[in-house]
Design a protein around this nucleic acid. Structure first.
Lengths: 188, 188
DNA sequence: TATCAATCTTGACGGTGACAAGATTATATT
DNA sequence: AATATAATCTTGTCACCGTCAAGATTGATA
C-alpha cells in the first residue's frame, strides 16, 4: 500500500478474538460446510486483519483442531448430563450432533485435524470415557460398537441431509427417531 | 505470453480424460481427503492443462458430483451382487465403503454436491431402491433406518480413523465386525 | 474436402493460506 | 512510576487455486 493508513484507535486489540473466531467458524460450518471456511472471512467477520487468526491457531488446521477439541468437551458434558441410562446416553449423542452441527461435522474428520495434538487427544479420550460410562459398561464390545455406530450413523445422515424427504424419517424429529431406533433394535 | 510456445505434437487430445480425472480424484480423496483436492493437481497428474477439467465437469463441484454419481452406481451394483439376504446387504454396504473410500467419502456430503443434478439424484434413488430390496422390505421403517444408520455409522467411523486403536475394534477386519454387529443387534 | 462441434490451451483475475517483519498494547519487574 | 518483556495484531508479500474468456487443435460429419 502507498499511504499506509493506520487503523482506528483502540481497535488494535480485539480482546476476545480466539473464542470469537471459534464461534464464527462453527456457525459457518453449520450453514455452509467446512469446505468453504476461510480464515480471512472469519477475520473480516471479527473485524481484525487477515493474519490475526494465525497468532491464535497457527494455521487453518490448528483452528479446526481447536474447534474439534472444544467439540469433544461439549459432547462429554452432554453425555455426563444424560445420566447413567444407556438409552439416554445414545439419545444425547444425537441431540448433541443436531444442536451443534458446526462442531460435530469436524470432530471425526481426521484429514482436517492435527493428529498429534495433545489437547485434542485428551478431549477425545474424555468423551470416549463418558460413552463407556453407566449402563454401557456391562455390555460386550460388539454391542458398544453397534450402539456408537448406530447413533453416529444416524446423526451423520441427518446432518448431511441424506434423510430429507426419505420415507424412513417422515416428519419425526431426530431425537424421537433415535429413541425409537434404540428401543427397536434391542439394545435396551 | 510473448513466445507462445506450442505443446508437443499429438498430445493435444488426451482421449480418456474424464474417467482419468475421476480415477485420480478418488485416489487423492482416499489418501488425503477431499479438502486438499485440487483441479490443477488432477490436471497435472493427467498431463493436461490446468483448465482442461472444466470442460468435462464445469467446476470443482461438478467433478465431485460426477464422482458421487459414479459412487451410487457402484454401490447399487455391490448391493445387487450381495443377494437378497438382509445381513449380506448390510455387510456389502460396509465392504463398499472400505474398498472405495474415495467414493464413499463424497457421496453423502451435501455441501460438496450439486443439489439439483438429475443424474446424481437418479443414481442415489437407484441405490436407495437396492437398499430396500430383499428381506429388508418386510420390516418397519424404524428397523430399516436403524440398519442403515448402523452400517453407515460404522463405515464412517472406520474410514475417518476413529476406531484406530480402540478396544471396540481390536484386530478384527471391518467386514467381520459388521457381520458381528448385525447379528448381535437383533436385526436378523 | 469443407464445415462444425468437441476437446484442450493460454492467459488473466480475484481470493486464499502462509510467512516475515513491524507496530501496538498488556503485563510483569524493578 | 519507569522500564523491559511478552502477547497481540497489522502490513506486505508470495505461490497456489478456481474460474472465466478467448483461441488453437483435433475429430466427426456431410
Amino acid at each position: 500500500m502507498s499511504h499506509n493508513v493506520p487503523m482506528a484507535k483502540g481497535t488494535y486489540h480485539h480482546g476476545d478474538l480466539r473464542p470469537a473466531l471459534l464461534k464464527a467458524a462453527a456457525e459457518h460450518i453449520a450453514e455452509s460446510g467446512v469446505e468453504t471456511l476461510s480464515l480471512r472471512e472469519l477475520a473480516r467477520r471479527a473485524g481484525v486483519s487477515h493474519a490475526a487468526p494465525a497468532h491464535h491457531f497457527g494455521d487453518r488446521r490448528g483452528l479446526l483442531t481447536a474447534l474439534a477439541t472444544e467439540a469433544f468437551g461439549l459432547l462429554a458434558d452432554q453425555l455426563e448430563a444424560a445420566g447413567p441410562d444407556f438409552r439416554e446416553i445414545a439419545v444425547a449423542y444425537v441431540r448433541f450432533a443436531v444442536s451443534n452441527p458446526g462442531h460435530f461435522k469436524v470432530m471425526f474428520r481426521g484429514d482436517l485435524l492435527s493428529a498429534d495434538d495433545a489437547r485434542l487427544a485428551a478431549a477425545r479420550q474424555g468423551s470416549a470415557a463418558k460413552l463407556r460410562t453407566g449402563a454401557t459398561a456391562g455390555r460386550g464390545p460388539d454391542t458398544q460398537l453397534a450402539a456408537w455406530s448406530l447413533v453416529h450413523g444416524f446423526a451423520s445422515l441427518w446432518l448431511d441431509g441424506a434423510l430429507k424427504g426419505s420415507p424412513l424419517a417422515d416428519d419425526a424429529d431426530p431425537e424421537t427417531l433415535a429413541r425409537r431406533m434404540v428401543a427397536r433394535v434391542g439394545l435396551e
